[in-house]
Write a protein that binds this DNA or RNA. Sequence first.
RNA 1: GGCCCCUUAGCUCAAUUGGCAGAGCAAUUGACUCUUAAUCAAUAGGUUGAUGGUUCGAUUCCAUCAGGGGUCACCA
Length: 490
Amino acid sequence: MEEQFTVRQDKLKKLVELGVTPYPYRFADAQRFAAIIAAHRDRGADDLKQADIAVRCAGRILSIRSMGKSVFMHLFDGEEKLQVYIRKDIVSEKDFAVNNLLDIGDIIGVQGTVFKTHTGELSVLVKELTFLAKSFHPLPEKWHGLQDKELRFRQRYLDLIVNSETKDIFRKRSRIVQSVRRFFHDRGYIEVETPMMHPIPGGASARPFVTHHNALDIDLYLRVAPELYLKRLLVGGMEKVFEINRNFRNEGIDLMHNPEFTMIEFYELYRDFNDYMDLSERLLLDLAAEMLIDNTITWQDFKIPLKPPFQRLKYMDAIAGKSGLSVEQLWNEAEVKEHIRARFPEEPLPPTYGKMLELLFDLYVEKTLVEPTFVTYYPKAISPLSKWSRFDERETERFELYIAGMEIANGFSELNDPLEQRRRFEEQTRDRERGDDEAQLIDNGFLTALEHGMAPAAGEGIGIDRLVMLLTGASTIKEVILFPSLRPKE
RNA sequence: GGCCCCUUAGCUCAAUUGGCAGAGCAAUUGACUCUUAAUCAAUAGGUUGAUGGUUCGAUUCCAUCAGGGGUCACCA
């Protein structure tokens, strides 16, 4: 422990005595291991010997097998492993002395020629060795990798060095985000950035984090959603916009939730929620084609084929189907209250009618929505930013997409009647007074924007972390966030 | 936040009803010019998460605390 640290510091001193620069500035033109392997993997040993191909590459030492006057090491360039072979009769005396002071975990650069060992492994015969960095700490064990979840998350760099599955997940995450971006750019959307700090937290029902701005001497809230700012852009005539960024919600941490999480929200003028269900389906199928085998999500115990068209199910029908209540009974607050009291006496009675419906939905429906399903026509009471349904004033043109019992997307025809929007906010204020502390606050700046006239529009948000979970099979949200929220230690 | 489980060497894991805390890898020293879980010989490494308690004796039993995992609640 302490001993390994001091031993390795001594080795660095000895390297300096040999004339090595302990922290050099650059090692340019290093080839990626993957490229070297791909270029020469299929060539025979004799062929390679004759070709005498020079390569230059760098990586972290993962293993050392020394036979005294010759040494094999595996290097890792963050992506692939490559074996290098150092012989006393080939490298300079100094380089061989440097080699003898190397530890697993150190980073070196090498120049040499490509060859194949007797067992056929493509390797680099080192001619020149460049010391690049010392590791004072030992790497986790090579057989089992790093198992301890806490260490994996707190010291993610170790996880990335030792566990290749971790690296795969984040490479896939990058590809997914890239594909999503391309999807919207290809359709003429422009990417925007709106404030992360809001004077009034809005756009979603959630508790915010509070911070303070000293110069203005005001409290600000980390945003729970960018929605109200993106819709201001719609008023400004930005016809198609999207933003991929973090939202912050002051809620619990579990398999599906991290206090900061990544959302894409996108909006388009002259569209409604039907258009956006179609668009969501297209996006999911494009991603599936790129990321999945047979368009099938493998997650937990589920195998879920993504087959269009996705099922569409009205919110109230969904609850009615599972609860035994009729849709008309569900529209009656007294009946709903009675049902909850009778069937779920242990549940605290929600403070508002909307919350009661949400409770029933969560208890009866959510986990059953394994196949991709658009739940549609959410009640007005729980959808303060959605436009009322053209068929039933009690409902809104809102949908949520569920896959594997997880909420993945939430979209709607945007409410663009400023007077109705103000009434909805006022209703939220009444909910808040009844004890719903997640009810939304009145954002007068947003209302003023709507009063200038907003064309009909559709909008939607998709949780990127959950999407990545589904597409990579990751079991928890912590596996798809590089540095998930943990209690700080020490 | 409630409940349940976990915490032993740098890492991965052992330890009989409560009876001297062990192994592999990593490390140190030595041998070895095609090894790849390299091999061989030797060595070192521990306040068993922390603090109290019970006991002749605690990794083991009890209490409190800390961190983590799982679950429930809130939420996406």
